[in-house]
Structures are given as C-alpha cells and as structure tokens.
Amino acid sequence: MTGDKSPGGAADGPTGGSRGELIGSGRSADVYALGAEWVVRRYRSARDTAAEAAVMRRVGSYGYPLPALRPGPFAANEMVVRRIEGPTLARALTTGDASAAEGAALLAALLRRLHRVPPPEGAPAGHRLLHLDLHPENVLLSPAGPVVIDWESAGVGPPGLDWASSALILAEASLRLDLAPLVELFLPEFLVLAPPELGSYLTAARERRERIPGLTAEERALPGAAFALLPPLWADARARYDAERHP
C-alpha cells in the first residue's frame, strides 16, 4: 500500500550481468527476475543494503517467514533473495480469497511473531525488531505459507510503533478511492487485534511517515489526514475488544 507492483521489460546491471523481467516496482526500488529461483532488488539511489540484509538474516535465523538471501557479493544498492510465488494478501482480499477478518488476523499474527524475535545485543529494554512497513501488499501468500517482503524500513524500537505504523498505512490506503471499500472493512478488524500501546505511538508513526524522503506534497499530507481518521476507529476497536473479552 506504499507502492505498486507492476510488470516490465529487461535490464542489465552488476549482479550477475543480465537481469530479466521487471516484476515489481515500489517507491525506492525495482525488483527483477534473476533466473527461475531468485530476484534482485535494486534501489534507485546509492543505498547500502547491508543493514537491511543484516536484519533479514537475524529475523530469518529464528524461523520468521521471509525470502532467503543469496550470498553475495553484490552491488551496494542491491540484494538477491529467493523468488516467492503467490499473490499478495492485498490481492487475496480484493478477489475474495481471504476475508477482512482472516487478513487482519494474519497481519496481526505476523507482527506478534516478529516481535518475539530477540533484538540485537545492546538494544534498549522493551525494544524489538520491527518491520515498520507491514501491510497486505508486503505479505505474499506462497504455497508454503505467508512470506513477508520489503524490509527496507526495518529497525529496532518499541513494538507499539510497528502496530501504529501498520494502522497508519492502512488508514492512508483508505483515502485512496480504489481501496477505500476494502480497507474500511479490514482496518477495524486489524485494530481490534492490536495491543493497547498502538495508541501511544500513532503520533510517532505519523511523524516518521511524513519524513519519508522523496514524497510529493500530496503524499506528505496523507499521514496527517490518515492520523485524523484513527482516533474514533481506535476507540471503537477498544470498546469492541472489551465487549468481546469481558461481556
């Protein structure tokens, strides 16, 4: 919900010579086929992917579902990961293959599972590894189960910030007319599964989203507009949570 995945042509680059079909494009990177089993994610800016790869290796070492990294060396702004076949969760929601309640439960379970991964040594007390861009377009439904992609924003911090970031991204998507009906069903289901600390980190999530490099003026206004939608939805979710668990 932060960038479209679209097909394209071919390209050449430093990773093994020729890259194949352009199979995905987001705000900051393009993804090309690299043979039948791998894809190369190439950032358009001079970005070092070492930190992102380190987070992925740590998370993957604890069995979290993400694409396997192929050993390098690669160009500094590239990484090669296992190709995952399957639709995004967003696609499954759109086609009706997954209901809003099922999709929200899956997204919430992936966040909880990620936050059980031990953080790196020296992390502040209570901090965990965070994805910070976990939404239905970044979950692939492979035959073996869900796989989380796009770890560009990952880092260490309080879990509530991860939940708040996902909620805010979903609220931003609700402002897009083509996604509004879907998200209006999905977002309340997601919020009722969220921990109470989500509410404490909504402001931090908004400020973080507003600082994303390269936003247009229209895009920079989205987090604030989305933030304004969330308080009544969050209040309704807490009331529903209490009613369902303490009737």
Rank of each mutant, 00 (worst) to 15 (best):
L198I: 13
F186S: 00
L161V: 15
P223I: 02
V148R: 11
R209F: 12
R209W: 09
S174G: 03
R208K: 11
L140H: 10
A217Y: 12
E137S: 13
P146H: 07
R206Q: 05
E197W: 00
E152A: 08
I169K: 10
V183T: 07
A205W: 01
P159E: 11
A194H: 11
P223E: 07
L134Q: 07
L215S: 15
H131W: 11
L185T: 00
G214E: 11
L168R: 14
E184W: 13
S166Q: 00
E137G: 13
F190M: 05
E172A: 14
R206G: 14
S153L: 14
E152T: 05
L177S: 15
P136C: 06
L134R: 01
I212T: 08
E210V: 05
L179A: 14
P136W: 02
P188M: 09
L170E: 14
S153H: 14
A171W: 11
I212A: 04
L132A: 07
L222I: 04
W151I: 02
S153G: 03
V156C: 04
W151F: 10
L185E: 01
L141Y: 08
L170N: 11
P188G: 05
L141N: 06
S166F: 06
F186L: 15
A204L: 14
L161N: 03
L134A: 09
H131M: 06
A204E: 05
L141V: 02
V148S: 10
P223V: 03
L179D: 12
L134D: 01
S153M: 14
E137P: 06
P143T: 06
E152H: 13
R206W: 09
L177Y: 08
P136A: 01
S142E: 06
A194E: 07
L175Q: 15
S166P: 15
F186P: 00
P195G: 08
A204R: 02
P136L: 06
P181H: 04
P143K: 13
P188H: 08
A173G: 09
A164K: 11
N138M: 03
G155H: 04
L179F: 02
L177G: 05
T216P: 14
L140I: 07
R176C: 11
A144M: 03
P158V: 15
I169N: 02
L222Q: 15
S165E: 15
P223R: 05
D133C: 08
L130M: 10
P146L: 02
V148K: 02
V148C: 09
D150M: 09
A204Q: 10
L134K: 05
Y201T: 05
L161C: 10
P196Q: 12
E152G: 02
R208H: 04
L179Y: 10
E189P: 02
P196E: 12
D178P: 01
A173Q: 00
P196N: 07
L185G: 00
P213N: 07
H131E: 10
R176V: 15
Y201E: 04
L193M: 12
E197H: 01
P223A: 12
L222W: 12
A204S: 07
L182M: 02
L182Q: 10
L187A: 01
L182Y: 01
A167I: 13
L168S: 05
D133I: 10
E210F: 08
V147N: 01
P213F: 03
V148G: 15
V147T: 15
T203G: 10
H131G: 04
E184F: 00
L187V: 01
R176A: 11
V139S: 12
L177H: 06
